[in-house]
Design a protein around this nucleic acid. Structure first.
Length: 597
RNA sequence: GGCUCCUUAGCUCAACUGAAUAGAGCAUCUGACUACGGAUCAGAAGGUUGCAGGUUUGAAUCCUGCAGGAGUCACCA
């Protein structure tokens, strides 16, 4: 790559001219801004003090030295104040573009499956309600970061941890027994997760009524919440569950089965999947063993009432509960257990958890407790924290009915995609199945891109109306660009008989072509930077830059009417290269790109 | 209240490690379809990067203080 060559030569020149010791990696090259001529820029200010010369002089001397050493690569340089701009020869760019045309793996590294894996957990749903918009951000991030790390050559294992036990499940079960009349997904036509979610809401409704009537009779609110018959019954049910009561377990399995079927459908629609699924009902006991171990080691302590705690005040945090006084486990207990189990299962090089930022504190504690329990691999735990998704009218709250359901949203997007396609009337020749697949592809492209283009750590605002806009910085814009490029390449090959593998030889390129090639050239760098930052957003925004640069170039370049055969060949190869680049970056985001649309 | 994170154009978002005149899209306005796919492109307008200091040749970026917002500090998960 040319940037590495440049770095080496600059380091050498610094040494020769001013006896400045600088490692090649420490030399920062940036892309030259559009307003100035050149391709790569070196800021020389950091070296002027040691060189004891003016910035202009240092830049000129460095420029000459590097140009002389690399006369076949660097065609020219110019100096503006302390900025040294290098221009790269056309031949370097053209041969680069030719080389990646038709290389379907450009920008993607090969995975060594013997390497210790990166284990990434995402999704982690509760089995008492359907997936909503917040889960969508989680799932898309988790999937995309997996793809991103894979593209960077890492051996990735995707896992899901289903929270299938606890009081919340009992609430749904209880409400279903009481008010369900034996309703099933089949009899009601409801998706399993929606059906169970319905009874979770039902429980809450009746529970609140009970609290209210107790309070009307003069009971304090706190007291009423504890004494409401429904709550007591739910707790008894949890106890029966933990005791392995046959009747409760059977119902639990039946209702969870409905939910899993529903989730699978949603996951499939979103295009996400897992290598392994953990269930808390299978892992929570291990956490309890770890707590015992902590007590034996003396890093945890037991209060008089029997509850177990960890004192984290020396780390600047509070005391943290690890086991309730009745001996049942809490969230942290389970997480300790699953972390250990996962480490044992995979021998992971890194453990990534895609979990919302409301749990930043939880993960801080988790790492410290693991460390104190004597697990050195605690350092390998990385919490990929993401911000909440807000709606234009404020936060999502299940109570106020402002939750956006995942299935509804996807269906809504598909409908809009269909309308937009109808309006444009371009797909009259496609059969109904193809059209349906296309609408789905566009709907998900729009949704995924809209969510992934935002930096994960930031709170984002989801505006349903805007997300379905297929213009501007959106997924469909990139999908459309890709389809158009494929159309050009098809025509070139079948109508003009162009051989994509031929060598176009030496040709000169214009500014817009150069811009496109440079973007492609930097793609691998961007992929590794994005992987280091766990940021699909970088990929998304970069893809958009590339698509935009291509459209601008495309607009005023008559590719297939070009009279010079070599030049036409080169332009088609450039098109092909761009489509490969776009396709691979969209692959990282989990977005499908159509050959035609 | 303690701790953590956030605040960039009317709106939604960028800006990799500090670097040249802080960039896109949407919305608004002006232009380009006898055209390889117009779901496009070219252009205009829009900014004291929350406020006040500091460090630096250079700050949206680093430090301090303040204001505003979010999260968390549960025998919830």
């Amino acid at each position: 790559m040319i940037d590495i060559t440049l770095q080496n030569n600059i380091a050498q020149a610094l040494q020769n001219l001013y006896s400045i010791e600088a490692t090649p990696e420490s030399i920062v090259l940036q892309k030259t801004k559009k307003e100035f001529s050149g391709d790569y820029t070196l800021v020389v200010f950091p070296y002027v003090k040691q060189a004891r010369k003016s910035p202009e002089m240092v830049a000129n001397e460095l420029g000459s030295a590097v140009k002389n050493a690399l006369s076949d690569l660097i065609s020219d340089f110019n100096v503006i104040k302390g900025f040294l701009n290098f221009s790269v020869c056309d031949s370097y760019w053209t041969s680069f573009a030719t080389a990646i045309a038709n290389n379907p793996h450009y920008g993607l590294k090969t995975v060594d499956s013997n390497e210790a894996p990166v284990v990434i957990e995402y999704s982690s749903p509760n089995t008492n309600k359907p997936l909503h918009l917040g889960h969508i951000r989680n799932n898309l991030l988790g999937w995309s970061v997996s793809q991103l790390l894979t593209a960077n050559g890492r051996n990735v294992k995707k896992v899901n941890l289903v929270n299938d036990r606890g009081i919340h499940i009992c609430k749904s079960m209880l409400a279903w027994l009481r008010y369900g009349n034996g309703e099933t997904p089949e009899s009601s036509g409801l998706k399993g997760d929606h059906l169970v979610g319905k009874y979770y809401v039902e429980f809450d409704k009746h529970y609140k009524e009970e609290i209210k009537s107790l309070m009307d009779r003069g009971v304090e609110e706190e007291q009423a919440k504890k004494e409401a018959p429904l709550m007591i019954e739910a707790q008894q049910m949890l106890k029966r569950w933990e005791d392995g009561d046959k009747e409760v377990r059977e119902l639990w399995e039946k209702m969870n089965g409905w939910v899993y079927a529903g989730f699978d459908e949603t996951y499939k629609k979103m295009g996400v999947g897992f290598d392994k699924i953990y269930y808390e009902s299978n892992t929570y006991l291990l956490g309890k063993e770890l707590v015992q171990r902590g007590l034996d080691l003396g890093v945890l302590y037991r209060k008089e009432d029997g509850s177990v705690w960890c004192d984290l005040t020396d780390a600047g945090l509070d005391h943290k509960l690890l086991l309730r006084k009745d001996g049942t486990s809490v969230y942290m207990t389970q997480d300790l257990g699953t972390a250990l189990l996962r480490q044992k299962d995979f021998g992971a090089d890194q453990l990534i958890y895609v979990v919302g930022n409301e749990q930043d504190y939880h993960f801080q504690v988790l790492k410290i407790v693991l460390k104190r329990l004597g697990f050195d691999w605690a350092d390998k735990v990385y919490h990929l924290s993401y911000g909440m998704v807000e709606l234009p009218n404020g936060k999502m709250k299940s109570r106020e009915g402002t939750v956006v359901d995942a299935d509804d949203l996807i269906e809504e997007m598909e409908k809009t995609a269909e309308e937009m396609c109808r309006d444009r009337g371009k797909n009259d020749d496609m059969d109904p199945d193809q059209l349906k697949a296309l609408y789905h592809m566009l709907a998900l492209g729009a949704l995924k891109y809209f969510i992934l283009k935002v930096d994960p750590s930031k709170t984002m605002l989801f505006n349903p109306a805007e997300s379905i806009d297929f213009n501007g910085n959106t997924g469909p814009f990139i999908q459309y660009t890709h389809a158009r490029i494929r159309s050009i390449v098809r025509k070139a090959v079948y109508e003009k008989g162009i051989d994509l593998h031929a060598n176009p030889g030496n040709i000169t390129i214009n500014e817009k072509e150069r811009e496109v090639i440079k973007l492609l050239h930097d793609m691998s760098t961007v992929v590794s930077q994005a992987a280091a930052a766990y940021s699909p957003a970088m990929i998304a925004n970069y893809s958009y830059d590339l698509a935009k640069a291509f459209n601008s170039f495309y607009q005023d370049t008559p590719i297939l009417r070009e009279t010079d055969n070599n030049r036409m060949l080169f332009l088609v190869q450039l098109c092909d290269a761009v489509s490969v680049g776009l396709k691979n970056m969209m692959w990282i985001l989990g977005i499908d790109v159509p050959e035609r649309m």
